[in-house]
Simulated scan of single mutants.
Amino acid sequence: MLQLRFTCLLCFAVFAAFLATSAVHAHHGWAWASDEEFEITGVIQSVRLGNPHGRVTITVDGEEWVVEVGQPWRNDRVGLTKEMLSPGREITVHGHRAAEEDMRKVKAERVVIDGKDYNLYPGRDS
């Protein structure tokens, strides 16, 4: 009986540690971004979709910006495809820019292409 209690307690401790670690890792994706809403419009130069997040490079007033879009499953869920993110297309990004002012990077919450919204984080206001 004592062995069973010990095993249950050990399993619970491992599970609790896993949950705590998962929460920390889930939060890392926004740690570098400011809390303020941000919007930018530019022309797509290149795209790399994949894990952990897709990256779209856009040109705005002669400067390159990196836009972090969602994970593959998140992009798929809203219908955002590589074809839509093709070079030469205009894109408007709503989200949060990097907290470091000299870093030209944006975490996208929502993007607009050809007048259509793709809300990557529907639970957030953007």
Rank of each mutant, 00 (worst) to 15 (best):
residue 45 Q to I: 07
residue 18 F to S: 12
residue 102 D to P: 03
residue 69 V to W: 05
residue 24 V to C: 03
residue 47 V to P: 00
residue 3 Q to C: 08
residue 41 T to M: 05
residue 21 T to F: 14
residue 1 M to C: 05
residue 102 D to S: 13
residue 9 L to Q: 15
residue 122 P to N: 10
residue 114 D to R: 07
residue 26 A to I: 04
residue 63 E to Y: 07
residue 111 V to W: 03
residue 107 K to M: 12
residue 28 H to W: 10
residue 4 L to A: 14
residue 124 R to S: 11
residue 25 H to V: 11
residue 90 E to L: 01
residue 33 A to M: 12
residue 88 G to I: 01
residue 77 R to Y: 08
residue 114 D to F: 03
residue 13 A to M: 15
residue 113 I to Q: 04
residue 86 S to L: 04
residue 48 R to L: 05
residue 84 M to R: 08
residue 36 E to K: 15
residue 123 G to V: 01
residue 35 D to S: 14
residue 42 G to T: 02
residue 28 H to S: 14
residue 9 L to N: 14
residue 121 Y to I: 08
residue 84 M to Q: 09
residue 116 K to Q: 08
residue 100 E to W: 07
residue 55 R to Q: 07
residue 47 V to C: 03
residue 66 V to M: 08
residue 55 R to D: 05
residue 55 R to H: 11
residue 79 G to T: 04
residue 87 P to K: 01
residue 1 M to R: 10
residue 106 V to W: 05
residue 79 G to C: 06
residue 2 L to K: 12
residue 101 E to Q: 15
residue 119 N to Q: 09
residue 21 T to D: 14
residue 28 H to I: 10
residue 59 T to W: 01
residue 116 K to M: 04
residue 32 W to P: 01
residue 67 V to Y: 07
residue 49 L to C: 02
residue 64 E to I: 01
residue 67 V to L: 12
residue 39 E to M: 10
residue 63 E to S: 12
